[in-house]
Design a protein around this nucleic acid. Structure first.
Lengths: 231, 231
DNA sequence: CCAAAAGTGTTGCGTATACACCCATGT
DNA sequence: ACATGGGTGTATACGCAACACTTTTGG
């Protein structure tokens, strides 16, 4: 028999957190999944997560669980929403609050820890079946990522320090599930002042088709945002 | 001593829901607040809400509490987010999930019920001090309302069946906290196909300055959205 | 009589879109 | 040599912002 040392006057649900983490490998947008070590959904792929503990906020819980299960520690995290269908967890009534985050390419090394047999990055178009209602969480996460792309410079976290415009375009193509005209795409961002080209060395200067690397220009981005906001 | 009949192996937080309801009175955007009958924050103004019960989702709980405390039953509700600061509720660790909704002008009659001494609509620029972290919830709700205005026809729920363009413009002015040029505002919406003018009677036709009433055109709105989405 | 609300068009500018060719690299 | 990826400029269309005057109504 299980020990039940927490007693309350009124009913309370169990509360969990889940993490949808995005990364970009230069070609495709990926999300991080773990293969569950325990029931329910043992051996299924799921977003890393776990139970809220007493002395932490929901976001803190999400960060803790992500660190424990995969070793990742994203800088920015934002809430996707809560999920509370009555039958979403076979263990009993559980509500989950999901968080989305993005990591830089240099920080995508994931190790399966704790409750996970495995931790792997999946391109968003090759996702396996997911445990619980995580398919549902995933759709909302992707929607939120799109909103984030339009309202914050999170694309540049995914791209990392140095990137080419074709890389950036592949990222946008994956995120928005649509194609972009290459010339218009480049014109748009080059004229926005958001990007700073990286100086080419002598070798590169001789080659008119050498790839051009850019880095994110924070000051330029702020100006750009203010101009959009107007008044 | 309180009876504590719910026992759990692991710690669980109390879970509440809160409602930010918006309405429009022809001049200003309003939100609905109740004056609390009980501690904590007795006699303070707060958003209507209460504890999640066992056989309901979070949204169902929000609807139930709103109905109990104010009599309102909005058609559409969307999640604002969750709030989980450790000290947000003096009664102990409580997390809250907040929901935003809008009601038609014809359905704004609010009666204080249950845990409320009073229930009143406050223009958003004349809000009193709020209980708990509700100020925080409110700011996020307003932000979400703006997003909603840009992505869904919720303005027309707030406006009700018939409305004039100046009314509509006052609504937008309140929601976005900024002014709009009257002619550009009208041109934009009249050319969008979203609005259908209501036939004027003989009296009105003689008066070149009689107010022109419009109603929301759902088919026109759908076309408009599809055009925006492109590809 | 005055103030406030509401009706009404035109023009310019800037941003978004559509579109074709060349070169270099690797297979 | 062929396919792929990546570099580059121009012309057009559409939406957005700026802008002034007149009439009615109510105080």
């Amino acid at each position: 028999m299980e020990e039940a040392k927490f007693r309350y006057k009124y009913w309370r649900p169990a509360v969990t957190v889940d993490n949808v983490v995005f990364s970009f490998d230069g070609t495709h947008l990926n999300t991080l999944l773990i293969k569950r070590k325990n029931e329910p959904y043992k051996d299924c792929w799921a977003f890393p997560g776990g139970f809220l503990e007493e002395k932490e906020t929901l976001e803190e819980a999400a960060r803790r669980e992500l660190k424990e299960e995969t070793g990742l520690a994203p800088k920015y995290m934002s809430e996707i929403g809560s999920f509370s269908a009555l039958d979403r967890d076979p263990r009993g009534r559980t509500i989950s609050v999901a968080f989305a985050s993005v990591v830089r390419p240099s920080q995508t090394a994931a190790v399966a820890g704790d409750d996970a047999i495995d931790a792997r990055w999946f391109p968003i178009n090759e996702m396996p079946m997911l445990a619980f209602d995580h398919e549902h969480i995933y759709r909302k996460a992707l929607w939120l990522l799109r909103l984030g792309f339009m309202n914050a410079p999170i694309a540049f976290v995914l791209l990392g320090d140095l990137f080419t415009l074709p890389e950036m375009q592949r990222l946008y193509t994956d995120v928005f599930s649509r194609t972009f005209d290459r010339r218009n795409f480049q014109k748009k961002f080059l004229s926005s002042g958001i990007l700073t080209p990286v100086a080419q060395d002598e070798e590169e200067k001789k080659n008119p088709h050498a790839p051009i690397y850019y880095r994110f220009n924070e000051a330029g981005y702020k100006q750009f945002r203010e101009k959009i906001m107007k008044i």
